[in-house]
């Protein structure tokens, strides 16, 4: 197996781990961790496959991932502020699971 393929498949693994964590764990902080891990998985797919171009890798996906990392930290910061407010308002760290079933 080639190096790009190995890392890209690891990216798929991270995506699925993150997706599993997002769905299964109730604690909101864990959900935020899970989304970050899923994001890292996507970034890994993007960058790993850019390594297929021979000697010098394709820089465009690198730039995209740097953009993605900054977007991810922005989203995480927003999620965490929201979590602190939610936790202060409700005294809970998880959403009511029955809230969304109509």
């Amino acid at each position: 197996m080639s190096t790009p393929l190995l890392y890209a498949l690891a990216g798929v693994g991270l995506c699925l781990l993150g997706l599993y964590g997002l769905i299964v764990y109730a604690h909101l902080l864990r959900k935020i961790l899970a989304l970050n891990i899923m994001g890292s998985g996507v970034f890994l797919i993007l960058v790993a496959l850019a390594r297929r171009s021979g000697d010098s890798p394709d820089p465009v996906p690198h730039a995209m991932v740097i953009t993605g990392i900054v977007v991810a930290v922005s989203a995480t910061a927003l999620a965490l502020v929201l979590l602190v407010r939610f936790s202060a308002a409700t005294g809970r760290n998880q959403l009511d699971d029955d809230e969304h079933s109509p």
């Binding site: 890209a8 498949l9 798929v12 171009s53 394709d58 820089p59 465009v60």
Partner: peptide, 16 residues
């Protein structure tokens, strides 16, 4: 996802 990634060509220039 794995299948889609494995089906991509082994060599690709992208925009390099």
């Amino acid at each position: 996802l794995g299948y889609a990634i494995m089906s991509l060509p082994q060599q690709a220039q992208g925009l390099a």
